[in-house]
């Protein structure tokens, strides 16, 4: 894991910068229009917006699951729009990602799943034979300890609860020794207490490792509670960019272009 222990210092390094970035999908739908943003080391960013506003596209453009079609995105010092496959894999190694549906290899053990986070750094022959090094295994165990489920290391991934599976996914991302952590609706499938637990874990990791963390959320209250900085998207453009704590209902209504409803709230954590 990274040694850097920067908080949200003003002079933190820029890890991601969107430069006039646009994304139009092959079916003609424009998901992002002329986005300009800079994300820094150690920032905990929450992206909010209605479904279809471009939240997911914004996150997925950073690791180029979705290629930009206009402008460019500079990620860890590399412009990614016309990046080669080899360089893309190299850049992706330092970007962890977690998903709404956890996306684990269901029939494999928890430990095997976390170890897959090491595959990017492993020579192909070792990957092919499944010959992880001692330090890979040590790191995987450290990551499992970190998310508090080392006791499940030899369980099959699909035997775990949703919250536990999401923690395995976080451990897998940590095993990459990332500098950036992307989370695409990480709590949408979880009950409120578990959702808050996962958000607290993500926030703590971001602090302790100096990780730039970018989380997509639908829930207004969670965004305000956890975000250092909130990015509000509407119809593919940035309509809000500011600290989470001092957001008002009016700000959210500008992002959502309607009144806030009860289902926009996740509800309080049972601390």
């Amino acid at each position: 894991m990274s040694d850097v222990s920067t908080g949200v210092a003003a002079k933190a390094a820029t890890l991601v910068s969107f430069k006039n970035t646009s994304v139009t999908y092959p079916n003609g739908f424009t998901a992002l229009t002329d986005v300009n943003l800079e994300f820094h080391e150690g920032e905990f960013i929450v992206v909010v917006g209605l479904s279809g506003a471009g939240k997911s596209t914004l996150i997925r453009t950073i690791n180029r699951l979705v290629p930009p079609t206009g402008g460019d995105v500079n990620v860890l010092g590399t412009p990614i729009r016309n990046i080669s496959d080899a360089n893309l894999r190299k850049t992706r190694r330092r970007i962890g990602m977690i998903f709404q549906n956890y996306n684990l290899v269901r029939r494999s053990s928890v430990l095997a799943n976390v170890l897959t986070g090491r595959l990017g750094d492993l020579p192909t022959w070792r990957a092919l034979l499944g010959l992880y090094t001692k330090s890979d295994t040590d790191l995987a165990i450290k990551c499992l300890t970190r998310v508090g489920i080392l006791d499940k290391a030899y369980n099959r991934a699909d035997q775990l609860s949703g919250g536990q599976q999401q923690r395995v996914a976080i451990a897998r991302a940590l095993a990459q020794q990332p500098r950036i952590l992307l989370a695409d609706e990480p709590v949408a499938s979880l009950d409120p207490p578990t959702a808050h637990q996962v958000m607290r874990d993500l926030k703590a990791l971001s602090r302790e490792e100096g990780l730039l963390t970018i989380v997509n959320l639908h829930f207004v209250d969670m965004a305000m509670e956890y975000a250092d900085r909130v990015i509000g998207l509407h119809a593919g453009t940035v309509v809000y960019d500011g600290p989470g704590a001092d957001m008002t209902e009016a700000d959210f209504e500008r992002i959502y272009q309607r009144k806030i409803r009860p289902d926009d709230m996740r509800g309080a954590a049972e601390h």
């Binding site: 893309l88 894999r89 970007i95 990602m97 290899v105 269901r106 595959l119 990017g120 750094d121 990957a127």
Partner: peptide
């Protein structure tokens, strides 16, 4: 799962 491993750079 394939997408998740793709994003690790594997």
């Amino acid at each position: 799962a394939i997408e998740a491993l793709t994003t690790t750079g594997a």
